[in-house]
Design a protein around this nucleic acid. Structure first.
Lengths: 175, 175
DNA sequence: ACTGTCGGTTCGGTCACTGAACCTTCAGGT
DNA sequence: ACCTGAAGGTTCAGTGACCGAACCGACAGT
C-alpha cells in the first residue's frame, strides 16, 4: 500500500491483497477495466481521477500483473491496458462489494448483471441461480438499471449505457 | 472516504461501498471484528495501527452501523465494539479478497475456514461444497494453517492460534 | 501514594492525493 | 511550413491523511 508503512506485520491474505489493491482508486480502475475500459483517457474522464494518480495506478497494476499494457498502434505509439486473468479473478470480490454497497447504502438498482446465456440475474457471488453454475466473467451481461443517469456528461458513461458483456472492449462514440 | 474529495461522481455501488470501507485499515478492522476482536487495545496490538487512526476508524464504522459500541462494564467505563449484521454482510467480500490474495500473492495457507457442522473447508464464496449450502458466518470455524507463525508476539495473535468460530468473542490470556 | 491498565487526544513530521499547468509525439488540415 | 488537436503522460505547489510518540484522565489494586 506504500503509505509510509505496509501491512507487513499482518499474517493475513486479506492484508496482502489490500497491499496490492487497497489504495484509493485502485479497485475502481480494476472495475472499469472489467467493464471494458482500456485507454488512459477513458479511465481519466470516467473516474475523474487526477492524471498523476491514474498513471501511478496503471503502472502498479501492470507491475502486479493485474493489467497488461499492450501497444495497439505504432504511430503515434499508443498503449491500452487490458485486464489479465489475475484481474479477472477480482470479479467475485468486486461483485460482492458492490452488492453490499447497494444493499446497505444504495436506494435503487444502478446496473443489472445477468447470465448472458439465460438472462437470469446473477446471485450474490456472480453465480447463476438458474443454471446453478459459476458464470465466467465473459458471460456476464451488464445492463443499465433504473437508478442510472440516462444522459451522462462523459462519453465513457454514455457508452456504458448500452448493454454489453464484461471484458468486451468499450466502443466510444466521439460526440 | 474523505480524502479531499469523495467518489461522488461515480454512479456505482462499488464506489459507494468504498467510500465507507475503502480507507486504509478499515477492512482490516472489520476482519478483526469478525474474528472476535472487540476491544480498542486488542485491535491496537493486533493491527499495529496508530492509535488516532484506530479511534477514527472505530468511530466511522460505528457511525455507519458496521460496528456497535456497547458498554460492558460501568466502572471504569469500558466499551466494546461488536460487529453488526451490516458488518457481518461484508464476510463474502473479505473471504473472496483473502482468497484472491492467497492464490495470487501468498505461498502457503495461513488459515483454514471450515463449516463447523461437517468440517469441510469452505468454497470460494464461503459456501460449503459438501452441504451445498451457504454457511452462516457464525458457523465458520477458523483454524491456523501451516504458514502461520506458531509463536507470535502479541497476545491477540496468540489467542487466534486456537481454532474458534467467527464472531465468537476472543479470549485473551494475559500471559 | 504509587503503579498499571484502558481508552483515548494532541502534536509535529512525513507522505500521498489533488488540481492545474505544462510537455512531447504525431496526424491532419491549410 | 505552420497551426491545431488528441493522446498520454510529467511536474509542481498546496492540502490533507497518516505515522509515531507523548501525554492525559479515570479507575483498580497494593
Amino acid at each position: 500500500m506504500a503509505l509510509g508503512k505496509d501491512y507487513a506485520t499482518q499474517e493475513c491474505s486479506i492484508a496482502r491483497a489490500l497491499e496490492v489493491v487497497g489504495e484509493r482508486w485502485t479497485l475502481l480502475v480494476v472495475r472499469d477495466a472489467l467493464y471494458g475500459v482500456r485507454r488512459y483517457n477513458d479511465f481519466l474522464v470516467h473516474l475523474g481521477i487526477p492524471r498523476a494518480v491514474l498513471a501511478a495506478r496503471l503502472q502498479t497494476l501492470t507491475a502486479e500483473g493485474i493489467l497488461h499494457k499492450r501497444r495497439y498502434q505504432q504511430s503515434p505509439p499508443r498503449d491500452e491496458y487490458v485486464v489479465t486473468d489475475r484481474g479477472i479473478a477480482l470479479w467475485p470480490t468486486l461483485r460482492s462489494l458492490g452488492l453490499w454497497g447497494r444493499e446497505h447504502f444504495g436506494e435503487v438498482q444502478l446496473r443489472y448483471f445477468r447470465h448472458v446465456t439465460c438472462g437470469t440475474e446473477l446471485g450474490p457471488y456472480g453465480e447463476c441461480p438458474a443454471c446453478r453454475s459459476v458464470v465466467p466473467v465473459a458471460d456476464v451481461l451488464v445492463e443499465p438499471g433504473p437508478g442510472l443517469d440516462p444522459d451522462p456528461a462523459d462519453p465513457v458513461s454514455r457508452a456504458l449505457l448500452k448493454p454489453k458483456l464484461l471484458l468486451e472492449p468499450l466502443v466510444i462514440e466521439s460526440a
